[in-house]
Design a protein around this nucleic acid. Structure first.
Lengths: 200, 200
DNA sequence: GTATATAATGATAGTGTATATCAAAATATA
DNA sequence: TATATTTTGATATACACTATCATTATATAC
């Protein structure tokens, strides 16, 4: 029996790594909830996940990344591009958000409560979140550019993308108790209002 | 001669404190420019400013604040409120920015080059800047609310403020070489474009 | 002018995140 | 079974930041 490396199924090693990463995140979020973010040390997290502190930093570059790590961006990109071509950028974004949300695994939705509470209350995490938002300007500018057939560096396209991000940001900072669905509903309302031309 | 505390002129102490703070900022920015932000330690800054490391933290709560500290917000608020009542919020903001810029002391403008370069290149500083931007949503929402006679918590008002911030954000992330005037010109163009209804 | 309260400073010690290095252990490949 | 390669853990270290306390400087009261 040769150990013919099944390329389709990701080998033992990668699976074990994924499991370890999930375990770290799981125990860390639990500890954060129990004792608070700042009061929980890497040492405690490492002990709970049964690894050494050295190993922790091989899975998460910083403590903050435990809370912020997810991989929704590629899904959002795909969903945006999959929207009907006749939709404008704002409508396409609303559709994409809706589609991604409905397809989201229950376990991710469940964790979202703790995560967004932490992001709201811990300054460092809020800042990192904002950085991700800002990084999305480039991303959205590119998606918008594709859809309307213009260069992504176009000033109008970038400003448009900025306005979209801004409305989402305003929705994000609207309420403090923040289940995912409720937040996304606010984002949707904000984008609808932007599309209507921001009538005051 | 009694030491009758001249209330108008801020006493010795406060002046000396202001001078010390300025000296710290001055030497720190110089060191950042020479050796880089991360490579410069608080110890080095303290030594250059001829104070102890302990004292440093009594003047700046964090290393980041050396770069980010300024007091433009109150000026911007005053300038916004001083705009003619018949102007809409976006026009008023454009006017306010213009007014503040022209009144800005030359020494502040001179420092701006180093500061914005650092904010662009050092992640922690960029994040703090973004946090300030996000905080401005509340501020701008309030100013807009006053101007159009609506509650600041109004969803439309907040989303409108978010869109304004978003366009400014997009302008901020447009170019890397960033003299203050050039950046503010981009902000002005972005707001003008927003006012025009974001035509693509 | 001297005594007393108040504030600023510096020295010291400590916590916790993050980095670097290197040997030991686990896993893959030949 | 032998040999690379990866993963891990142990150790040492840097540096931002906090807390505490004695010392010094400044302001106020007598």
């Amino acid at each position: 029996m040769s150990p013919h490396h099944d390329a389709a199924a990701p080998g033992w090693r990668e699976r074990k790594k994924a499991k370890t990463k999930a375990a770290i995140q799981h125990h860390a979020l639990r500890l954060f909830q129990e004792q608070g973010y700042a009061a929980t040390t890497i040492e405690q997290i490492a002990e709970a996940a049964e690894i050494s502190p050295s190993t922790f930093f091989r899975y998460f570059p910083t403590k903050e990344d435990i809370v912020l790590w997810d991989d929704l961006d590629p899904q959002l990109i795909a969903a945006f591009q999959a929207q009907p071509a006749e939709l404008g950028p704002i409508q396409a974004m609303r559709g994409a958000i809706h589609d991604v949300l409905t397809r989201l695994p229950a376990e991710v939705v469940a964790q979202q409560g703790v995560r967004s509470h932490l992001i709201f209350t811990v300054p460092e995490l809020r800042m990192r979140m904002l950085d991700q938002f800002a990084g999305m300007i480039d991303l959205i500018a590119q998606l918008v550019a594709e859809r309307v057939g213009r260069p992504a560096a176009d000033f109008a396209v970038r400003t448009f993308a900025g306005a979209m991000i801004g409305t989402m940001l305003a929705a994000f900072f609207t309420d403090t108790t923040n289940p995912l669905a409720e937040y996304l509903a606010a984002v949707d309302a904000g984008l609808a209002y932007l599309q209507a031309g921001l009538p005051l």
